[in-house]
C-alpha cells in the first residue's frame, strides 16, 4: 500500500471517525526526520522524546486550523523548531543553571555507545554545535545537517533570508574554531586529514 500524501492525511484527520488513524499515520510518516532535528538540538535522547511528544501534541490540537497552502512538513518543522528552543530556554530558567551546565547535562549521553555511535570527530562536532546559542544552533542544524533551503528556513523560523545567511556563516566560523582548537600544537593532528590520509 502506498504511503498517503499529506493532503490525504489532513482530509482523514478532519473526519471524526478516521481522526486517530490519520494522526497515527502522520506521526509515523514524519517522526524520524523531526526526531533527527530535535536530537541535534538537544542531544539527550530522553529530552528529545519529551520535545517530540510536545511537537505532535501541538500538531494534534492545531491540525484543524492548519492552512493547506503551507506544507505540512514545514509546519511540523516549525513546531519542532519552536518547541526545541522553548525547551532549551526552560532548562536554563533556574537561577544557578548556566548554559555550560545545561550543555554538560545534555551531552552527557554522548559518552555511552548506547546513545552515540559516531567517532571522535563526530563527537567533537556535536559538542561544538551545542556551544551555539539555541537559535543559531537551529539555523546551523537546518542548513548543514538537514540541507534546507534558506527560503524554507525563513518560513520555519520567521526570520529573513539575509539574517539566516549571516547567522549560518557566523555559526560555521564558530564551529570551525571549536573544531580546530588545540590543533595548532605540533603534537595534535587533524582527525579529518588523518582519516583522509588513511584511505
Amino acid at each position: 500500500m502506498n504511503e498517503p500524501t499529506d493532503e490525504e492525511l489532513i482530509a482523514l484527520f478532519r473526519k471524526e471517525e478516521s481522526r486517530h488513524y490519520a494522526f497515527n499515520l502522520l506521526v509515523r510518516k514524519h517522526q524520524q526526520r523531526l526526531y533527527g532535528f530535535v536530537r541535534r538540538m538537544v542531544t539527550d535522547p530522553d529530552e528529545t522524546k519529551d520535545v517530540l511528544q510536545n511537537v505532535f501534541l501541538k500538531a494534534w490540537t492545531g491540525l484543524d486550523k492548519f492552512r493547506e497552502d503551507a506544507q505540512l512538513y514545514s509546519w511540523l518543522y516549525r513546531i519542532a523548531h519552536n518547541e526545541s528552543i522553548s525547551h532549551l530556554k526552560r532548562m536554563r530558567r533556574g537561577i544557578f543553571t548556566s548554559e555550560a551546565t545545561v550543555t554538560d547535562r545534555l551531552t552527557s549521553s554522548m559518552g555511552s555507545g548506547e546513545h552515540f555511535t559516531g567517532d571522535e570527530i563526530q563527537r567533537k562536532l556535536q559538542r561544538a554545535v551545542m556551544t551555539l546559542p539555541p537559535k543559531q544552533r537551529a539555523v546551523f542544524t537546518m542548513k548543514y545537517f538537514d540541507e534546507l533551503k534558506y527560503e524554507e528556513m525563513s518560513r520555519v523560523t520567521g526570520t529573513s533570508v539575509g539574517a539566516l545567511k549571516s547567522s549560518y556563516h557566523i555559526a560555521v566560523k564558530k564551529i570551525e574554531a571549536e573544531l580546530t582548537q588545540g590543533l595548532s600544537r605540533p603534537d595534535q593532528t587533524n582527525p579529518v586529514q588523518e582519516r583522509q590520509s588513511n584511505r
Binding site: G113, F116, T117, Y144, I175, V192
Partner: peptide, 12 residues
C-alpha cells in the same frame, strides 16, 4: 575542517 567531516547520523 567542518566541511571535510562526512555527514552521518551518529545518534543511536
Amino acid at each position: 575542517m567542518l566541511f571535510g567531516i562526512p555527514k552521518q547520523d551518529p545518534f543511536a
